[in-house]
Design a protein around this nucleic acid. Structure first.
Lengths: 207, 207
DNA sequence: CAAAAAGACTGAATGAATTCATTTTTTAAG
DNA sequence: CTTAAAAAATGAATTCATTCAGTCTTTTTG
């Protein structure tokens, strides 16, 4: 059987994670004090810091879970995409966007992004960066699949095009979470507009 | 003559700005304490806060100065660009990148970006966002000029294409400052690679 | 010029994240 | 089963950004 220590550790980690995500959702990231998280998880403040390097680390852990789900959901679109390039790309991106606010508020996204930029060397920041890379790779894979199916011209650098689509959707998402007034619909609409030229031009059959 | 109060205010503002930028450069943003900045500027801590809303505000003020210079320098490229689309776009972008580390370290950029994302409603964040918009508009203007000169096909949505180039260069710059090991040369090279497909496809004379 | 009003300045007090020396619990060794 | 070693947990103390009530300076008014 697993040692007592290992079981207790896993349990505490779960309690802390749940206490933190719950509090973040209820009162927001800033208003959630470590003391409160620790109290809800029934551990001391010091113990919190034995499990997570910082409050930001804790947040990135919750965001990472979210992004992993999104990548999973993307796989089915990548493996069986709409025939039309713009439709396929938009389908994948809209899926990302629609998932994004299920568990996380704009405030939480802002904070998570801020932390991952400011302290890129912490373990959870690396994990976040890796997930970004995985998303980028997924978009590139989609473009490559479309090329294999004859929907994208031969000779196109699919990694470059994928990176461009990804960087665009990512930057636009950043703008989206920065602006409380911006809606998901507008975000999707603008990104689709921006993607159209490249999507059209790489398509087989464009003039 | 200007009132005594106005003169003293301007002088103090200059002293605080210089003390802060100096300390940020010398010891980094995090290690520069408000108390130290105030001491070097020969004012009290409270006075610092009469001039800047927060420590981050102070940093964004210095970044804004930098970005304004870059936009100025970009104007001449936009008004008289190389004939080839990829060359023109790369010329403008490389200019942005080359200027970026003259006054600011990667750490300062990271912190400034983090703050502008996390607290988008503060005055200096708005200024930063506005400058980003101006940069984006400059890239779009370049593409439009190239179209007017017959280097870019008719019918291309130059605002969309400009936004895509800009979001790509901006996201790649973010990745660059996140990674201490990444060089300016590699950044420029990768961005040029990513831009090539779109730049080629919108060019007049592409197959 | 004197008094009042407006504007700045000040630094001690506040509040929250993070640290760290001690204490407690678990595991491993004999 | 003891006991030494290792691992975890603890919470009081520390550190810093930020605030604010009181004081001082400049400007305006009469």
């Amino acid at each position: 059987m697993t040692g007592l220590r290992a079981r207790q550790k896993a349990d505490k980690n779960r309690r802390i994670l749940e206490a933190a995500t719950g509090l973040f959702r209820e009162v927001g990231y800033d208003a959630a004090r470590i003391e409160d998280i620790a109290e809800r998880a029934a551990v001391s403040v010091g113990t919190f810091y034995n499990y997570y390097q910082s409050k930001g680390d804790m947040l990135l852990a919750t965001v990472a879970m979210e992004v992993e789900e999104v990548i999973d959901a993307g796989r089915s679109i990548v493996s069986d995409p709409p025939r039309d390039v713009l439709s396929a790309v938009s389908r994948l991106i809209d899926q990302y966007y629609d998932h994004s606010l299920v568990y996380l508020s704009k405030e939480m996204w802002r904070t998570a992004m801020a932390i991952s930029i400011q302290q890129p060397e912490t373990p959870f920041s690396r994990r976040y960066t890796d997930l970004d890379r995985a998303l980028c790779a997924q978009v590139s894979t989609l473009v490559r699949n479309l090329q294999a199916r004859g929907a994208v011209r031969e000779g196109i650098d699919t990694a470059a095009v994928g990176a461009m689509f990804f960087n665009n959707l990512n930057m636009m998402f950043t703008d989206f979470v920065r602006d409380e007034a911006m809606t998901l619909e507008r975000l999707k609409h603008e990104v689709a507009r921006q993607n159209r030229p490249l999507a059209t031009l790489i398509s087989v059959g464009a003039d």
